[in-house]
């Protein structure tokens, strides 16, 4: 049997008194595109950030690419080299050019030499159609362009899984599609993707599975068609009404 790319078993997370994640069980098979949605404060960002160890958890098990994501920083480093992440606020390094943003992580994480790293960076920037901005600094670019540089930066490490934490929430409406387009290309190229988003158009187009979270729990999961057309729960129905 093929091992799932990500498997999460009875995950619990408490922030002081706040119960952020309640008994979350989840498997993401290799090559699948999973969309996590839900109202704000439902724990979806917390869950995705647990997957590469940016967030610690109280109990449960997370297994990513056969590695146990926990407190062991050496294992975490290994996981992060193989799992890319894109953030809501891009988090590009503002003091480095867009090219250097893509080159430096390759050198520091993978030990690539500068020549190979630069070549790879230019190729990824080109795929994201931001190669003409390589020599500029991030704050000289629009939000949509910055997010595509951030995506190129993550892809330079040749990750096996991509995590997207609300990648279009900080963008002006007219820039959302330019980011979603490149994400859809990735999904069609069989990259394993976990994406927290409110963009139901994206979910409808490429998601293999949609999960709805509320109050730290997975309320419902299913194919996009099923979730949009025949939701089983009231919360799902309400949510789909609001976002569509």
């Amino acid at each position: 049997m093929h091992k799932p790319a990500i498997s999460i078993i009875s995950l619990e997370k408490h922030y002081g008194d706040f119960h952020a994640l309640k008994n979350v069980n989840l498997e993401v098979p290799d090559g699948q595109t999973l969309v996590i949605c839900g109202p704000s404060g439902s724990g979806k960002s917390t869950l995705i950030r647990c997957m590469n160890g940016l967030e610690s958890y109280t109990s449960g098990d997370i297994d990513v690419l056969g590695m146990a994501v926990g407190d062991n920083t050496q294992v975490l480093d290994q996981v992060r080299k193989r799992v890319g992440m894109v953030f809501q606020n891009f988090n590009l390094f503002p003091h480095l050019t867009n090219l250097e943003n893509c080159v430096l992580p390759q050198i520091r994480s993978l030990g690539r030499d500068r020549g190979a790293a630069t070549e790879e960076a230019q190729e990824q920037l080109k795929k994201m159609q931001v190669n003409i901005h390589a020599a500029k600094f991030p704050d000289q670019l629009s939000g949509g362009q910055q997010q595509r540089v951030a995506l190129a930066r993550a892809l330079c490490l040749k990750p096996e899984i991509m995590l997207f934490d609300e990648p279009t929430s900080a963008l002006d409406p007219e820039m959302i599609s330019e980011v979603l387009d490149v994400m859809q290309d990735l999904a069609r190229a069989d990259m394993t993707i976990v994406c927290v988003t409110h963009e139901m158009g994206f979910a409808r187009a490429v998601a293999d599975r949609v999960i709805l979270m509320a109050a730290g729990e997975i309320v419902e999961e299913g194919t996009p068609v099923q979730m949009f057309n025949n939701p089983l729960h009231d919360i799902t129905r309400e949510f789909m009404k609001v976002v569509n």
């Binding site: 940016l54 080299k81 953030f87 606020n89 988090n91 390094f93 430096l104 992580p105 520091r108 994480s109």
Partner: peptide, 30 residues
């Protein structure tokens, strides 16, 4: 320096010394 900078560097698998030397200190000085 925003927390997102350290998060991005960690998520990219950059080691701690690199986070400090390449990302945090240059921005702190600027």
């Amino acid at each position: 320096t925003p927390d997102g900078q350290a998060e991005a560097a960690s998520a990219l698998g950059m080691p701690y010394w690199s986070l400090v030397v390449d990302i945090l200190l240059p921005q702190a000085f600027r």
